[in-house]
Every structure is written in structure tokens, then in C-alpha cells.
Design a protein around this nucleic acid. Structure first.
Lengths: 292, 292
DNA sequence: CTGCACTATGAATCGCTAA
DNA sequence: GTTAGCGATTCATAGTGCA
């Protein structure tokens, strides 16, 4: 099946109205933060943030499938030495709008922005708010399992030593079952704290998150051929990752520069996939490089 | 100067009224979470939580010095598959009460509770909300600097045991120099994410946080002979740490069992210090056992 | 005294069953 | 209907014991 990518140039408050009801499986986005990035997005005042966002989240609620998920990456700004409360107010307002606030993941940034202030340490985490329409939504937990910690390591290490001993003694039978019991459990489910670096490949966009972030949520909440939406596309990280992972995607961007940048980066990808699909069918790593 | 510890048996809403205005340098506490621990504290319903807490935070605002800090450890419960919003509402309500919401630290728990659910991962973090009366407050950042890089990590790991012994021995001489040699080299300011285990030495209390938690904030926000208050004392972790770090402390506890437990544990400590200081000067490890 | 194996358990959450 | 209680599930760490 063909994977598609749709781009819209314009304000999310208008453009999202063009999308069908209950048509999107996952929304992952990082909206412009309040009063930040004045040069690019004009900056929304903290006091007006909720008011500005609610019409958008209303549209998102409409277009999301009942089994879908909305992941919102956001962090409140410090204003006059104090954390603003607009994120708290937004959560409360979105619940009144009909959203369920299912969970708050923490993105623990490995390399946070450097700096020193007399009354504050470096801010090295952001919120990843998970909202749903329904108590029952699609979640593919096994897709994001992680290798186990020391417990399994030492177990496996122990077994391998034993195995070695047996090999040396040339007995070597009956151990397969034991080992496979442990190997079956070499992966564990993650927690709600994500520990990723803030690598920012897209220097042209001021707020791109690392690819691992949308990748993780796309794995967790969608399967192939599902539809992913980013209403604040920016440099298009979410869309490129979706494409690579064989998910259809939709992006909305208000600034022509970013829109064009993503469009121009995307077209070679699509052409590439159409033209060289058979040729590179067995050469996935190269294809990935070629895409970016 | 003599370090004192004052205990109050009773409800914080009443007992705090006995304290003087602007008399406390730091408040560190972990109140009962909503609808938890029904057996011990009666359990506050999530819908009533803000209403229940505001009279207490009003008293805390009164007794805190203008340069003081209030650190609140709290985490919202999941109710019917959704995160409750009472913590958000509490933050907003406390700001209206006159508090400044300066910062939110994350306590990233190393060993979170296990479990598996179809729509949720393990919860491995809690909020540490920092409130202040004033934009300008006391903060001794250099006291909580952490070693940088592997080189210093391994060195400091070895020293930390020694350091602990020193702390517990309440002797505080001789060891400082050795440690400062290492600390002077590669040290950096921490971030607003704390990575600690949930080790709970006090098996008698269901919700004691690890000693490192109050210790970190006591280092950061107070100096020796300052006054630390815990309005939900529980098993008394905050008070014991304060005592060990030469800070005066005040604890309020509503349950007689815990009150008595802390009182009985505390008196031997005080006597011990007075009576046996010279005797055990060179027998550090044993003394620690005796204290606890 | 180090190293390794083994064990206990922690501010949890869901879903089913009983009242 | 609605609520309250209980079992099943699960893993990183500290602590203990032994060679």
C-alpha cells in the first residue's frame, strides 16, 4: 500500500477543519511555547495561551479516531522568576472540552540547555501529555520494550558461563530449554520517563525535537498504514519519521519557509520510494540514509 | 549551639497555628496523597483535596520566612484510567493564596513499582513543587554540586560511604578536607531532575521518602542552625536528616503511633550525642546503627 | 574484603466479583 | 445501576549470606 504525506500551508485553526471526523490515529506535536520564538511564530502571551489553543484542540478532538491518542509536548515558561500556570489551566480546560488526560510522560533531556541562574537550576525535562477520547485506545506496548537491566544480564551471563563449562566438558545437552526461558525475558516494558538526548538535526527550525521522540510514540500508538498528524509541523520531524515507519502523515504549518522546506525534502523521498523500491528492497539501511 | 527538635501531636490545620509568623526557613513535606492510605490517614477524596489542603498551606505561608522555601512532594493518582487534576488545581489555588510557584523538580524514581496494564506503563516519577513567598529567597547552589564525568564519579562513589559515616557520626572534622580535594575539581550544578531510589528504611511507615530527598533540599535551601518544618512528619525522615545536618526542626503528626515512634527514636539520639560524643569519636560505623 | 547469587519489596493499577 | 475489595501482574534495587 502506498504511504502518503499531506501538507497544509496555513493556520491550524483553519486548516484542520478540512480534515474528516475520526480519521487520525495519532497526533504528536510540539506547539509554539508561550511567548517563545517571537521571531518565527509571533509568540502567544502566557495569559492568552489557553484561549488560543482550545479551538485547535477542539478540532483535534474531532479528527481523532475514538481509539486514537494525542501526545502534546509542552513546558511552561518562567516569567518573572515564576513558572506560568497556563499548562495546568490547559489540561483542566481540555478535560472540560471532552478530552481524557490519560497520562503525563516525562522527557528527561540528557543534555539540557546550559546556563546558570542564582535561583534556579538547568531545566532538563519537558512534559509529554497524553490525551485520549476514550478509556479504550490502541496501545502496542510490546513495540517499545527495552532490553532488561542487570538482573537479566547477570542471569544470562551466568548461564553462558555454565554453557561454556558444559561445552568444555563436552556434555552439551538439555540446556536449550533453560536458556530460552531466560532469553524470552530479556526485554522489559519501559516506564513513563523517557531518557533521550535533545539532538537537534534540523538547525533551521528552532524547536525540533529528536527523532526518537515521535518515533517512540508512533511505535507505541500506531501500526503500519495508520495516520499520524502534526498540526505544528515545523521542520517536519514527525512526518519524516512517520514516512520512514510506513505510517501515512498529515502536517500543518503556518510559515511558508518551513512548509516549502518540508515539501522539498519530502518530494525526493517519495520519488525515491517509487523509483527505487525494488532495487533497494533488501538494502534498508542505505535507503534510510538516502531518505534523509 | 544546641540543635532542637520540636514535635507536635495533632492536626496540622490546628497545630501550625501555634508557630510564630516568619519563623521557618524551609518546609519539606510529603502530604498524604488523595484517597491513599485509607487505613492510616482516613484518605482525602480527590475532589476534596484542594479544599482540605488550602487551610494548611495558608498557615505554612504565614510561618515561612520571606526568604524561605516550601517543597511539596506530591503525585496525582489514576482514577478510572485518567490522571486526576487536583495537583494542577492546587497549584493554581496556592498562587491565588499568595504563593509563588517557582519551580517543579522531578523525582525520577530508580525503582518504581512493578506492574503491567493494557493502557499504561509503570509510574516512575513524582513532582517536587517549589513554592516561595518572595522572588528573592535563600539558595545555596554550591552545596549540591555534583561530580562530573566518570573519573570523578568513581572517586566520589568510594568517598560517599565515608561521607555518610561522617555525617552520621556528627563529628564533622577531619573528613571534610579529603573530600574537598576531589570536589574542587570536576563539579557541576545539578539539573531539576533528581534520580533517587525509593528506599524506605522505616518499615513502620507506609510512605517515607528516601533520606537523600530531604537531605538534598536541606542542603540547597538552608544553612546550619536554620529551622526546617515538616507538617506531615510520618516516620520522621525529614527531622532525623535535619538533626544530623545540624538544622533545628519542627514536626507535626496527627497519628499517635508515629508521633511516639519519632519521639522515642529522637530522645536516644539527643541523649546519645550528649553522653557519648567523646567515647565513640573513633567508632563511626557502629554509632550509626545505634542512632537508628 | 571482594564478588557473586539470591531474596524481599515498594505512595501501583486494572478488572473482576460480591454486596 | 454503583461501589468496594481483592488477585494478578511485574522489575530495579538494597540487603544478606556464602565462597
Amino acid at each position: 500500500m502506498k504511504i502518503t504525506t499531506d501538507l497544509y500551508l496555513g493556520d491550524s485553526r483553519k486548516e484542520l477543519k478540512k480534515l474528516l471526523d475520526n480519521s487520525v490515529d495519532l497526533i504528536v506535536t510540539s506547539p509554539p511555547y508561550a511567548d517563545q520564538r517571537k521571531n518565527t511564530y509571533g509568540g502567544i502571551h502566557p495569559d492568552k495561551y489557553v484561549e488560543w489553543f482550545l479551538p485547535i484542540s477542539e478540532q483535534l478532538l474531532r479528527v481523532l479516531k475514538p481509539t486514537g491518542t494525542f501526545v502534546l509536548n509542552i513546558k511552561e515558561k518562567v516569567v518573572e522568576g515564576e513558572r506560568s500556570t497556563y499548562v495546568m489551566e490547559l489540561i483542566i480546560a481540555m478535560r472540560k472540552q471532552g478530552w481524557l488526560w490519560t497520562e503525563e510522560f516525562i522527557w528527561h533531556k540528557k543534555n539540557s540547555y546550559p546556563g546558570k541562574w542564582p535561583n534556579r537550576f538547568r531545566d532538563s525535562w519537558e512534559r509529554l501529555l497524553q490525551f485520549n477520547k476514550n478509556k479504550h485506545f490502541n496501545m502496542y506496548q510490546e513495540e517499545v520494550m527495552v532490553p532488561m537491566g542487570d538482573w537479566a544480564k547477570t542471569r544470562l551471563k551466568k548461564l553462558s558461563d555454565t554453557d561454556k563449562v558444559r561445552d568444555n566438558s563436552k556434555v552439551g545437552s538439555g540446556f536449550g530449554k533453560n536458556i530460552s526461558n531466560w532469553i524470552d525475558r530479556d526485554k522489559a516494558f519501559p516506564t513513563n520517563v523517557l531518557h533521550l538526548a535533545t539532538e537537534c538535526n534540523n538547525k533551521n527550525h528552532s524547536a525540533a525535537f529528536p527523532e526518537e521522540l515521535p518515533e517512540w510514540f508512533i511505535k507505541l500508538f500506531t501500526k503500519e498504514n495508520d495516520i499520524v498528524l502534526d498540526p505544528f509541523m515545523g521542520s517536519g520531524t514527525t512526518l519524516f519519521v512517520s514516512n520512514r515507519m510506513k505510517r501515512n502523515s498529515i502536517g500543518v504549518e503556518i510559515l511558508p519557509e518551513y512548509y516549502k522546506m518540508v515539501r522539498d525534502q519530502l518530494q525526493p523521498v517519495e520519488l525515491y520510494l517509487l523509483e527505487h523500491k525494488e532495487i533497494y528492497e533488501k538494502d534498508e539501511p542505505k535507503r534510510r540514509d538516502a531518505v534523509r
